[in-house]
């Protein structure tokens, strides 16, 4: 990188800036929109100068939406809370089930092992509606429809295959002899799994968990069909912003900002583990 002319460096800076603007523009625009009223947003021509208002956020948090046609109750905070509960519990359950399963698939050859693993993966490419219709009937019989338990269960269709396949790869990359060495030093199988296998694949597990969280968070169709108002996540709840008297752009923008915050925070937090994971992969013998 030393033999670089000023021109090259400037060009590089400009190109990076372009890419950044391209990707960041919608998000920045939404952030700006969330501090404007509907009138300010729809003004032509649009202007970057405006008096910021917290009205949109207030409406979301109190749950009262003022429109020309009157006030409307929305349950955005409840939706956000539902999203959080569903995603956190789904990922937690998928990790508890998926990590040991991934380990088993990576380390042991058993009858039908590959078939089971592939079947689990195939859940990812089955059209969700195909699964959902019969599932709704069963869930009604079982009393699971419109419960957190039922939704977390169905969300395993999204989370479990992801975790299983990503984490399995990490386990396969780790030499079993590292575990063997630890076991000959006088440790049982379970201790070795907890103290050697898990820590060494932690970056991979974090990455898989984050990805599963994002997928669970963004899920729409399962919740739309299986959850009623009080169990709905933000993805479904956002439909409420399309009201009889028009679309509430300001509130939608604020809702978007609020609903990407948890995922963003999680991603930033997980970042160091992800980076650690990359460097671990780079040095492996």
């Amino acid at each position: 990188m030393q033999h670089q002319s000023t021109f090259e460096r400037v060009l590089r800076g400009v190109l990076i800036a372009l890419v950044l603007v391209f990707f960041m523009f919608p998000i920045v625009w939404i952030l700006l929109m969330s501090f404007q009223t509907n009138e300010q947003i729809l003004r032509i021509p649009p202007s970057l100068l405006f008096e910021p208002t917290l009205e949109n956020y207030r409406a979301l948090i109190t749950g009262r939406l003022e429109t020309h046609a009157g006030t409307l109750d929305i349950r955005f905070m409840q939706n956000l809370w539902n999203s959080l509960i569903l995603s956190v519990f789904s990922v937690a359950l998928a990790l508890v089930l998926g990590v040991p399963a991934a380990y088993a698939f990576a380390r042991f050859r058993f009858r039908l092992g590959e078939d089971i693993a592939f079947t689990l993966l195939s859940f990812r490419f089955a059209p969700p509606l195909l699964v959902l219709l019969p599932l709704t009937l069963y869930f009604q019989d079982l009393g699971l429809s419109d419960t957190y338990v039922g939704l977390v269960w169905v969300y395993q269709l999204i989370c479990l295959p992801l975790i299983l396949w990503i984490v399995r790869g990490y386990f396969e990359d780790m030499s079993p002899d590292i575990e063997h060495a630890y076991r000959t030093a006088g440790h049982g199988w379970l201790t070795t799994f907890r103290r050697i296998s898990i820590p060494l694949t932690a970056p991979g597990i974090a990455a898989a968990g984050l990805l599963a969280f994002i997928f669970a968070w963004n899920n729409f169709i399962f919740a739309l069909v299986l959850a009623s108002a009080d169990k709905q996540p933000v993805t479904v709840g956002a439909l409420a912003f399309v009201t009889a008297s028009g679309i509430q752009y300001g509130q939608i923008a604020a809702a978007i900002v609020l609903s990407i915050t948890p995922t963003l925070a999680l991603a930033l937090y997980a970042q160091r583990y992800l980076v650690e994971g990359l460097s671990l992969g780079a040095v492996k013998g």
Binding site: I178, A181, Y182, K284, G285
Partner: peptide, 8 residues
């Protein structure tokens, strides 16, 4: 061990 087995 024949291969790499040190704890990283």
């Amino acid at each position: 061990f024949e291969g790499y087995s040190l704890y990283p």
